[in-house]
């Protein structure tokens, strides 16, 4: 591949497990220095895609190039140049924090002295210097996550793959992780992450794809996706206990023409509109009295739910 700025290139990429097709033909092109996100509900095919990119899962069909290399033939070389932060921490529970980083660094064939130096830097970077001699089992969830991220950086990767980097973390720990990832992005590391947290995708990614049932259903920057698939604002209306003939569905019918789209939830109505305040004023003009109203900006979550539906996926 002559194009040296293409870090990950997928064309018609597919992955099947027996009869089940997890990834049904996706096209992706991640550029150098970009922060790229895979967004989607559970079972959308994000992790299967990530494992193929990490060169640990054979491609079922289609083309996949990582750093211009073919994972089928150049797996070890690809893995030498990328960093992987898997969905579940796969830390070595029989080793200390420091040894986890040290041994892992050595797996890349790096010289001892070099690894020792990088381990000290990385412990500092993820704020675990004081825990260097602790066993992994004694760490909190957030600390383990930071250690996993530090570990994925020990080979100074050109691309960092993060599969749901903050799932299961408390808000403080999430913000620490975001902060570290943002710094890496500023240093020019190409980030590829999967998430189902919309705020995470909005905060961290330059460009993302929304996956659903093994396919890409939308692609763009967070802002362009919101512009394309949602409205600028959302007016949320909450009415009192629904009376007969006055249910949320019935009310929705009365205000349908005031918004581009109306969504009925069990406890409230969502009116997708360019100007939320204006829309609420019009609702009042029609003699409807919501007990509570809220105007907010459209988020990626609205896009996500619009594209992948509200039905629970397991």
């Amino acid at each position: 591949m002559a194009d040296t700025d293409s870090m990950i290139l997928a064309q018609g990429l597919r992955k099947s497990f027996g009869d089940f097709e997890a990834v049904k033909g996706i096209d992706v092109d991640v550029r150098r220095g970009e922060a790229f996100g895979f967004l989607g509900p559970n079972g959308a095919g994000k992790s299967s895609t990530m494992r193929m990119i990490a060169a640990v899962s054979p491609v079922s069909a289609g083309v996949l190039r990582i750093l211009g290399l073919d994972p089928a033939t150049d797996g070890p070389e690809i893995r030498a140049r990328i960093g992987v932060c898997p969905q579940e921490d796969t830390l070595d529970t029989e080793l200390t924090v420091r040894d986890n980083l040290y041994v892992y660094g050595r797996y890349f064939g790096l010289p001892r002295k070099e690894v020792r130096q990088r381990v000290d830097e990385l412990l500092e970077f993820v704020q675990l210097t004081e825990k260097a001699s602790a066993m992994v089992e004694d760490l909190s969830g957030g600390m383990k996550r930071r250690l996993t991220i530090a570990r994925s950086l020990v080979n100074r990767p050109e691309v960092l793959l993060l599969d749901e980097p903050t799932t299961g973390l408390d808000p403080q720990a999430r913000h620490v992780v975001w902060d570290r990832l943002f710094r890496l992005k500023q240093q020019g590391v190409t980030l590829v992450l999967t998430t189902h947290y919309m705020d995470e995708a909005e905060q961290l990614t330059d460009r993302l794809v929304v996956m659903d049932k093994g396919l890409i259903v939308a692609e763009g920057s967070p802002l362009s996706l919101i512009a394309e698939h949602s409205t600028r604002e959302v007016a949320e209306l909450r009415f009192g206990v629904a009376e007969i003939g006055n249910s949320h569905e019935a009310i929705a019918g009365k205000v349908a023409d005031l918004a581009e789209r109306v969504e009925v939830l069990p406890d409230r109505l969502l009116l997708y509109t360019a100007d939320g305040e204006e829309t609420i004023a019009q609702v009042h003009e029609r003699g409807l009295e919501p007990v509570a109203t809220l105007v907010r900006r459209s988020t990626l979550e609205d896009v996500f739910l619009r594209l992948t539906g509200r039905t629970l996926v397991d």
Partner: peptide, 12 residues
């Protein structure tokens, strides 16, 4: 321990 999973994320 998922030791081999982590090893396979490296050139091993």
């Amino acid at each position: 321990n998922k030791l081999f999973d982590q090893m396979l994320a490296t050139p091993l």
